[in-house]
């Protein structure tokens, strides 16, 4: 095995171009488990922990460019105000030690259906920045996840950042697990209100082969909010609206039975999460708070 630790982004993408099979490692919280248990023996380990461009975040107008290697702990400490949904999701990840090391970009790289950042990124309409020697492109998060642990990055590309709009309305994230810390989600749900465009966006986790939005639920709730003039009146949401929203979120999932839970349980739990998240976010919206 070889170990390369480029000191800047140029060297990092050049290395990935020269060795498309190289395994990138940032926090290592996924990669090292695979190495420790001999599930993976890459020819080359490409340590991106020394690339400054990946370790920073900046604000560019109303969007945040979050370097791929920024840890959950930093998102929680530094970005809870502007990225409340992602910060909420980050708080549920692993343990303090895992949050100190694990990164949003690493979560995307692993592309697990259960990755906790994903529902929040889907709800926030994030874009994933991919960089190679050929150039830089941004892939909408909706098009990023291709299958279980497969994503849209090409073999010569690195995930370099995530672009996320600063929240303009309340956001929520909720996750079901057997206890509070150190759990892979049985199912999870993220939701963001975008009052400017009168949109609700959603993200479903751990209840389909990939993280995905609940498109029909969004269409329904967007129309209902519009027709009822609710964005303007900020009235209480009708029971029937919450119930139909939850039903459509449930219908958007395609869960499986596994050791963490049955498909039926996941569907049921997801409906509960969806309803709660919408209710909580709307209550915040009514009281005029952002995030």
């Amino acid at each position: 095995m070889e170990f390369l630790a480029p000191a800047d982004l140029g060297d990092a993408v050049a290395a990935k171009a020269a060795h498309p099979d190289a395994v990138p490692i940032m926090g290592g919280t996924d990669v090292m488990v695979e190495l420790n248990f001999d599930r993976r023996r890459p020819e080359l380990l490409l340590d991106l922990g020394r690339v400054p461009e990946l370790r920073e975040w900046d604000r560019d107008g109303d969007r945040i460019r979050l370097g791929a290697a920024v840890s959950y702990s930093r998102v929680i400490a530094e970005l809870s105000g502007v990225l409340p949904g992602l910060a909420m999701a980050s708080r549920t990840v692993g343990s303090p030690q895992i949050r100190n090391r694990g990164s949003i970009g690493g979560n995307l790289g692993a592309a697990s259906p259960a990755g906790d950042a994903h529902p929040a990124l889907l709800a926030a309409a994030a874009e994933v920045e991919l960089t190679s020697v050929r150039g830089v492109r941004r892939v909408p998060i909706d098009d990023f996840f291709l299958g279980v642990k497969r994503h849209a990055g090409a073999p010569d590309e690195l995930i370099t950042a995530v672009w996320i709009g600063a929240a303009t309305g309340p956001q929520q994230f909720s996750k079901v697990g057997t206890r509070n810390a150190m759990v892979i989600a049985v199912c999870s749900f993220g939701l963001a209100l975008h009052p400017g465009s009168a949109q609700v966006r959603t993200g479903i986790g751990s209840a389909a082969p990939t993280p995905r939005r609940a498109a029909a639920a969004e269409t329904f709730v967007n129309a209902a909010l519009q027709d009822g003039n609710l964005w303007h009146s900020r009235d209480v949401l009708a029971e029937s609206l919450l119930t139909e929203f939850a039903r459509r979120v449930t219908a958007a999932a395609a869960p499986i039975d596994d050791v963490r839970g049955t498909a039926d349980y996941r569907r049921r739990a997801l409906g509960v999460l969806a309803r709660r998240c919408l209710q909580w976010a709307w209550t915040d919206y009514r009281s005029g708070s952002v995030g």
Partner: peptide, 27 residues
């Protein structure tokens, strides 16, 4: 455990607590 689950290997790395089993030596 060598998989980040137990915390028995917790050390400071540049002032931040991490599971040493999940940090590559070269890192």
């Amino acid at each position: 455990c060598e998989q980040g689950e137990c915390g028995s290997c917790t050390v400071y790395l540049d002032g931040v607590t991490v599971c040493a089993c999940l940090v590559a030596a070269g890192q």
